[in-house]
Amino acid sequence: MKRSLLPFFAGTATGLANGLFGAGGGLLAVFLLNRCGIDKKSSHATALALTLPLSLISAIILFCWGTTLPLGALCIAILCGLPGAWLGTILLKKISPALLSRMFGIVMIVSAVRMFLR
């Protein structure tokens, strides 16, 4: 496959997953960007540049479809999330996310099973 086509397909898969599930698009993007030949750390950072506009589109569609959004709770989550994000950007600069994401993989499998059996 042509090297330039790979990001196109990476974006398509990410958009589809992010739109359908409202989550996890970033995980897929990291994996696929890495396959495009971008190094691990940059894949993690660049995935965000991809999922930000895609998430905005998906959020607008779900909102227009009449999905309820508790604004107060959202503000609390964001206020607590921002210091977390700040910490995360420092961590990504300093350490390799490989071990962390491997640990996360196990959490993902366990939650997938729980979610499926619910």
């Binding site: 698009g25 965000l48 939650s111």
Partner: peptide, 18 residues
């Protein structure tokens, strides 16, 4: 608490959304 940890993971691109 969930927001804080999601923030860390989201900014690192290891699945904050999830």
């Amino acid at each position: 608490i969930a927001g804080f940890f999601s923030g860390i993971c989201a900014s690192m691109g290891i699945g904050g959304g999830f």
